[in-house]
């Protein structure tokens, strides 16, 4: 990445290029990365925390985490935005666990909304499209379970309550779904 002389306007850079500069402790790139990605990542935190105060805390921790672990980002494995979204999601879930999650009912129709939003995404979302296509191939109930666990942070017990099925059955669904996803994504 030798030629930084072209980096006159940091906001014109891709998240990947900025994140690689952040890995070298470049605070200017960090600011530009924030301007570029904060709304997206805050949305990720808000989706999981569902409460603004908590989401702010999770997002703040996550963005600090991004500064610290930017060196772990490997552009060969996925987009910078996806990597940062993963960091944000993990921080949000950790925070919920630390605070003890309250009762967090999900409104009916939210899952459909989620899928619709996902389908409406453009840009560098080729990864997402591939994942969505593979999710589409799953049976409906396991698919919902996977999405609720991943996007909403539901535990196996919460899923069991929601689907009125034993926790062991949920586990079987999830594992079957993961196995199907893995082979679909490798196609």
């Amino acid at each position: 990445m030798g030629s930084d002389d072209t980096a006159e306007s940091p906001t014109a850079e891709s998240p990947e290029s900025l994140l690689l500069r952040v890995a070298r402790q470049d605070r200017e790139a960090y600011r530009a990365l924030y301007d570029l990605c904060a709304a997206k990542l805050f949305g990720v935190a808000l989706r999981i925390c569902r409460e603004r105060g908590l989401a702010e805390e999770a997002f703040q921790e996550a963005f600090i985490g991004i500064w610290r672990s930017a060196g772990d980002f490997d552009p060969a494995r996925g987009s910078a935005l996806a990597w940062m979204a993963g960091v944000t999601r993990n921080r949000a879930l950790d925070l919920l666990r630390r605070r003890g999650r309250g009762d967090r009912p999900m409104e009916d129709g939210a899952l459909e909304a989620l899928l619709n939003e996902a389908e409406g995404l453009r840009g560098d979302q080729a990864d997402l499209n591939a994942l969505l296509q593979c999710l589409e191939r799953l049976e409906e109930t396991p698919r919902r379970a996977v999405i609720l666990a991943y996007c909403e942070g539901l535990t196996r017990e919460e899923l069991a309550t929601r689907f009125e099925a034993p926790a062991n059955t949920i586990k079987t669904w999830l594992r079957r779904a993961l196995a199907a996803l893995r082979s679909c994504l490798e196609e």
Binding site: A38, K40, E56, F59, A82, A85, L114, Q125, L131
Partner: peptide, 25 residues
């Protein structure tokens, strides 16, 4: 994590509060 991360991005964007970057900094 890498495989599933795109799904996290399916959340709608939301504007973080003003001044948050300064706090992080």
């Amino acid at each position: 994590d890498d495989k599933l991360a795109p799904l996290a991005l399916a959340a709608p964007p939301a504007e973080p509060p003003a001044g948050l970057f300064e706090r992080i900094s």
